[in-house]
Design a protein around this nucleic acid. Structure first.
Lengths: 174, 174
DNA sequence: ACATTATAGTTAGCTGGCTAACTAAGTCAA
DNA sequence: TTGACTTAGTTAGCCAGCTAACTATAATGT
């Protein structure tokens, strides 16, 4: 589950935005500004998450697979289901599982009823790794978000939903 | 300027969050929820942006370089300056410039005073490409954000600043 | 003046995504 | 029942980032 997005460092000044808006009348200056700000903060959060995980020898993709497995009742899921939930291709999931299996954090269990499919199971070592990483991750996240009260968090969710609703208009094919 | 981040598709339900919070008492459920929501929407926005740019034969990295050049007074900048503003390494910028130069959208101009450094200049074709892409990008972005009034955009900026202030606590090395 | 250090850019090789093509196994309809 | 289709997983090869090492040039200090 890696996402490619802008690695913005240098957000435009209001002056720059107005210069561009003068040439391109379609520009909605506050929309652009909020959009870039959102991508920028999300980028930095993602980098911070990488930094946290790397201190435990994990990367986002593999970490997320472990979490998805722990969510399951018997800590078991099919690769195709994991791929879908993680938002990666099945090919990518094969690679993630290879890495996790090599580290002993998950294991492949062959199904007897359908010999095409296999089950991926979180091992004890995998659970132990999560028990090491998650408290650190949750503690850091708690501290990161502590400047935001419940009302602001709620507001943020409402705003994000509104933006999300507009995304089809952004990515339309025409 | 590509950023690696979660490609989250399957956000946890409240039930799942509570299950994790029961095992890991450090968990701050609303913090986790808002954090993942933010990464998810940013991810989808980035994918939408990719989709828009690809219809004009561009990728985020190269597109951003063109914009940075257009921001400059004489449409000219040094590779190292571009790298810093784009948030990529100089090595990556070399590759971006190679691609843009091959497409004729920028050109390398050798400096006479310091023979180590070169200047990158936006060509007429590069400006024409921006004049093709930016109206489409701005129009799509306007439509995407049209569900958000000015007050909400302002709120979003305040919230993002608050989160941004907490990022050092997230990525601290200890 | 000349050895050291710093700076600008490039190259080589790694990584973790991706798509497309493939194997193997199950399903279904003529 | 057998040929076409679907599904699960893997493999091969591409791409755009990255780091580390390199060349060339400039600046600095003794």
């Amino acid at each position: 589950m890696s996402l490619i997005m802008l690695h913005l460092r240098d957000l435009p000044t209001l002056e720059t935005l107005n210069k561009f808006a003068a040439r391109y009348p379609q520009a909605d200056v506050t929309a652009i500004s909020s959009f870039l700000h959102l991508l920028r903060v999300a980028t930095d959060l993602s980098i911070a998450l990488d930094s946290c995980l790397s201190q435990h020898g994990l990367l986002q993709g593999r970490w997320w697979v472990l979490i998805l497995l722990m969510r399951e009742d018997n800590n078991t899921a099919m690769p195709s289901s994991l791929a879908e939930k993680a938002g990666v291709t099945r090919a990518t999931m094969t690679g993630l599982i290879d890495g996790l299996a090599q580290s002993g954090l998950v294991e492949r269990v062959f199904a007897q009823d359908d010999r095409r499919s296999i089950q991926i199971r979180l091992t004890e070592a995998g659970q132990a790794k999560l028990d090491e990483v998650m408290p650190d991750y949750y503690q850091r996240l708690r501290e990161c978000m502590q400047g935001l009260d419940e009302a602001s968090r709620q507001q943020l969710n409402v705003i994000l939903d509104a933006i999300n609703a507009g995304i089809p208009a952004f990515s339309k094919k025409s």
